[in-house]
Simulated scan of single mutants.
Amino acid sequence: MTEMIDPAHPAVGIQFAVGLCAAGATAEQLQYSLTQLPHSLTLKSGFIPERKVWVGAYNHALTEEVPRQLESVDSRHLRFALTALQMMEQDIRSYVAGFDSARLAVVLGTSTSGIADNEPRLQQYFQGQQGIAIDQKKQEMGYLAKAVQQYLGWRGPAYTISTACSSAAKAFAAGQRLINAGLADVVLVGGVDTLCQLTLNGFNSLESLSQDICQPCGQQRDGINIGEAAGLFLLSKRQAPVLLMSAGESMDAWHISAPHPEGRGAAQAMQMALQQAGLRPEQMGYLNLHGTATPQNDAMEIKAVRSVFQGYDIPLSSTKHQTGHCLGAAGAIEAYICSRVLQDQCWLPLHHSGVLDAELDDLNYVVSADLTQPIHYTMSNSFAFGGSNISLIFGTALK
């Protein structure tokens, strides 16, 4: 059957992609981590004064070289971004060689920026030490996209999106719009977030951090594990093995930090993504849940899934027990997972193995990593503070 694609939102091709997180530094490592039961998280001290905390730390090497023109914004955050970028830099430069540099855009998401590099100095300042200099540039939200643009030598639009946990997913939506509006020919999208004391202590004050490895939709779920990630994707109109089909967005603005209890905004985002892609719910082969493991988020998301899929037993899982909740980069690393699933066609990410909440256990959580038949479409959910919701759909081909 030929599906009708919304002409205002045609699919765009993912030409190249890289995803780095606690689960791995390569696609093979990521697949291994997401298809095995042992977790990838690390118990670390130094983030919260009174205790150690489980985090999704990226424990692999980062680039040691930062161009001179970027030294003023040098940070672990920038080096994480450049590490991911350099893994596909040669391919990107070859691909865009025939394009006008003014038509090459960068849209990235983040929530932490480079604040971790300033935190030791901020602590010294608040302890009363004199002559402490704080380099504000390192933690400005907008610097990330501009720095990457400067590194690449591009001259098109470049901006950073910061909408908490939906930031990176919204970069995909923005990139697709720039291309379809004729404002750019190629867009580098994705997100980068690094671990810092600010977010860990903030979520701790909300009593939202798990005491152990998080269990999305689990009977004993008690909160999140924060992680870090860098996920970058090159989008263009050209055909590619994996396509960004659509991005459905909504804003329910129910509460500053809590989602709408019935999942209305979440359901609307999923429905809009399906509508824009011209697809039916039963065509989705896999759903990557936002699945943070907080009581309210999981309960509302499962209600939303039930209302959208209405009896279709879609395979689904949350991968945050392996990656941590990567906040502003969560949408990027989970998009990378969905794209790899489509490209590899042999595996699905396992849901955690803990006991599920009896009120949420009626869905088709992935308990076997083996993909027994080809799938053509995957969906990834990202929901943020303030009711900022987005669902992305990826596909192997226009049907």
Rank of each mutant, 00 (worst) to 15 (best):
G13D: 07
L20T: 03
T26K: 04
Q29N: 01
Q31D: 02
Y32P: 04
P38D: 05
L43S: 15
K44S: 14
I48V: 13
G56S: 04
P67S: 09
Q69H: 12
S75W: 08
S75F: 09
L78I: 07
Q86V: 09
E89Q: 14
E89M: 07
Q90T: 14
D91L: 13
Q124V: 06
G128H: 08
I134K: 07
K137W: 11
K138R: 15
E140Q: 14
L152E: 00
V186E: 01
V187P: 04
L195F: 14
L198D: 05
F203W: 12
D212M: 04
Q219T: 12
Q220W: 13
Q220G: 07
N225Y: 00
G227Q: 06
F233P: 03
S236L: 03
A240Y: 00
S250E: 13
H255D: 14
A269K: 00
Q271W: 07
G278F: 00
R280M: 10
L287D: 03
N288T: 12
T292A: 03
A293I: 02
E301V: 04
I302W: 12
D313I: 00
S318N: 01
T323A: 11
C326Q: 06
C338M: 04
S339V: 06
Q343D: 08
Q343M: 05
D344W: 11
V355G: 08
D361K: 13
L363F: 08
S368N: 15
P374R: 01
Y377F: 12
Y377C: 03
Y377Q: 06
F383A: 04
A384P: 13
S388A: 15
L392N: 06
